[in-house]
Design a protein around this nucleic acid. Sequence first.
RNA 1: GCCGGGAUGGCGAAAUUGGCAGACGCAGCGGACUUAAAAUCCGCAGGGCUCAAAAGGCCUGUGGGGGUUCGAUUCCCCCUCCCGGCACCA
Length: 855
Amino acid sequence: MPPQENTPDRPDSRENDERYDAQRVEQKWFERWQQDASLYAAEPDSRKKKYYVLEMLPYPSGALHMGHVRNYSIGDALARYMWMNGYNVLHPMGWDSFGLPAENAAISNNTPPREWTLRNIANMKAQMKRLGFAYDWSREVTTCLPDYYRWNQWFFLKLYERGLTYRKKSRVNWCPKCATVLANEQVVNGNCWRHEDTPVEQRELEQWFVRTTQYADELLRGLDRLEGWPDKVRTMQRNWIGRSEGTLVDFKIDGNAGSAGSTITVFTTRVDTIYGATSIQLAPEHPLVADFVRFNQPLGESVQKLIAEQRKAKEEGDIGEIEKHGVNTHRFAINPYNGEKVPIWIANYILMDYGTGAIMSVPAHDERDHDFAKKYKLEIRLVILPISNDPEETMAEPQLPFCSHDGMTINSGAFSNLRSDDAIQKMSAYAQEKGFGKATVTYRLKDWGISRQRYWGTPIPMLYCEKDGIVPVAEKDLPVILPDNVDITLTGGSPLGRVPEFVYATCPKCGGPARRETDTMDTFVDSSWYFYRYTDANNSHAPFDGKTAQYWFGERGIDQYIGGVEHAILHLIYSRFWTRFMRDLGMITNDEPAERLFTQGMVIKDGAKMSKSLGNVVSPDVMVARYGADAARMYSLFAAPPDRDLDWQDTGIEGIQRFLGRVYRFFVRNTKPADPAWRGPVPSDLSPEARAIQRKLHQTIKRVSDDFQGRWHFNTCISAVMELVNVLYAAEDAIARQAVPVPFLADVQRNLVLLLAPFAPYLAHELWEMLGETSNLLKAPWPRYDAELAKEEEIEIPVQVSGKLRSRVTVPAGATEAFVIEKALADEKVQAAVAGKQIVKKIYVPGKMVNLVVK
RNA sequence: GCCGGGAUGGCGAAAUUGGCAGACGCAGCGGACUUAAAAUCCGCAGGGCUCAAAAGGCCUGUGGGGGUUCGAUUCCCCCUCCCGGCACCA
């Protein structure tokens, strides 16, 4: 007798055939997709509606993490859905591949940054392909290659031509671990954004700045129209730009004038309180302070203390908690509104880098000034009477020594008895008329410092000539190539400065010797415009062709941008700036880079962000090897709505694996493409069992389609598809009895595959083939639902008595109110509940519920 | 302090317009299949009380307190806690 294993009709063998071998199937499709490079390619086509869906490009750190998988699973599902809906979809991917980690790796493993970076890219690209993400790799952008960064340099020259970049010596943020300067946006709570335990230092350096403030107001106003962006991001950007309307007022210094002038200009948002100004407060680093010290040497020491205090607090990130200190200069300034002499103080809570670095201190109407005045016994003078809706409160409040909100002016000379807003306007106009001030706007936003004293970045295309000074590299000489084989250390300034072949150049103006700029650009320059490069990634004459970009961007930009909220300020404000800059160069016509932005939640595990130190990192490679790419992708969409944090549970992905196996098994058992009836017409009169399936199918199509259009709650989309599969399993008996017509079942299965395609592309392609379909599933038309077919024939109506659920009655879908109420009243449980009571009101919400109110 | 977001079973979550709270999944329990296990399929399942048990019945329940309403996870007011952002910004 032959060994049992070889017996073909052994029950086990059937089970083996039914079992979904994700690795085998995914490998098969992976290989097929590799062979067709043009599968996901898109070209401008005026006959088709375009859809540009973009996930933020990753830094090639070495390997994908689950956050990437989640991000790309969302984008890929959307791209596939839009393809199936007939759109011309652009779905590209690239690498934000300049940056410090490559240099750190070079130091610790003695691997050149280029090699390290390109190896990481190769690895991560392979991971993305294995995960089945549908990217058009013919448009791949790698920012560390000269093909790309030469255009950073080109843009830099354009910025320079337009006065949008300039060189300035100033105090800048310095991270000792990165050994480079940081932009304001890269300082988090006084620490480096990459080293959260490392306070930034202030250093005096000459740096290149990009004039982002030129567009401050437009960047702010633009936010109002970005309705497709999360409120959170818009609010963060508004706060960051920090627009503040106020008034500049010149106070004349009484007595000797020093080299820094004879007036102190203060900035205030509350000029209506100026009659209550009882002192002037200067920032310790205000240029006038030196003049006062010159006339009063002992002051110098106190000022040094204040400066030290303020710097320390800034570095520690608790400038907000600093104890208020000040010194009296014993000098006076004259309030131009009333001619009053007020003392000039220097205080540690006044910041030189906001407003003018000088304020008028109004203790009665500003909390900080109030604290300060109490401490140093300065006069507190009430000049605003609060207005309240409550007359009693209005009467009571003037007794208070302090009120920070607006009201009616009092004790304010010709400007008394005005509402605050009115007073502000009149008093600003008066200042302007008399020439001692004007209405103005200040911003918190500062110009973007883009110089980095690092190697692995875009060389800034500038030269310093002894004769001609700062000279831009000629456009024809671009790119300025970043040399290989550079000695990298994290100390001692820009590594490029140690490469003589790089540094010594010829001045394009006079032909004499010149030094090259040895700093490189902030990598956020690279990511400020990369999505335009995708439209024309292989262009060697320009960053991109205008017409091509116009097709993909149109007037509204990227249709859907998806990424992490950590870029809410950095990347997303720089790229909004860059878009306006390019628009003003005439390269594009859109004002904003992206019409819609989606910020997905983090992937966490055991309640904490995944990190090596906590040992709770889940590797996508392990998940793909264990459960398959479809399961990993689908679970990352199923476990939570995409905008919320996702708590990764290994047992959860097992559930998805089971579900995929369940779908596959159903298809193995019930797919009969050889049956002549398989492709026959779907009969119109269906059995109740078949009708139940049909109803569920159309309900599911509706739910999934609606979610793609609106809420993006892919977790519930997937639940809906699971419910449909459960209904199919429940009908297996009916199918066995042939109560479900074969062509109908075939149609249901085709629709099920289409519904699955955005979420589990590998399995969907396999099933599509099993069904005998030969068309390209990627572009197969998305199913349409029929509202009539989705309707229930009978509905169960809950019956409440005085708001409490007492029973349920089953009625035909179109039943009249009278019929439903009659049926409810006839119900035994309802009768018991209303027995002996009077029904005072009968409420019927059509199709939803009955409520009988009793007394 | 200010601005966002959140709090629902043992767990992840659902309830789209004020109308059956807990869909779907995980973990759990029970059954079928199996010599057995795995896999698979079917079923049960918020909590409490009642009943010998089951069926059933009753009460209660969406962070806490109040309100509007026939009816509130959903709307309004107050409060607590958690997460994120901003913060002497004049």
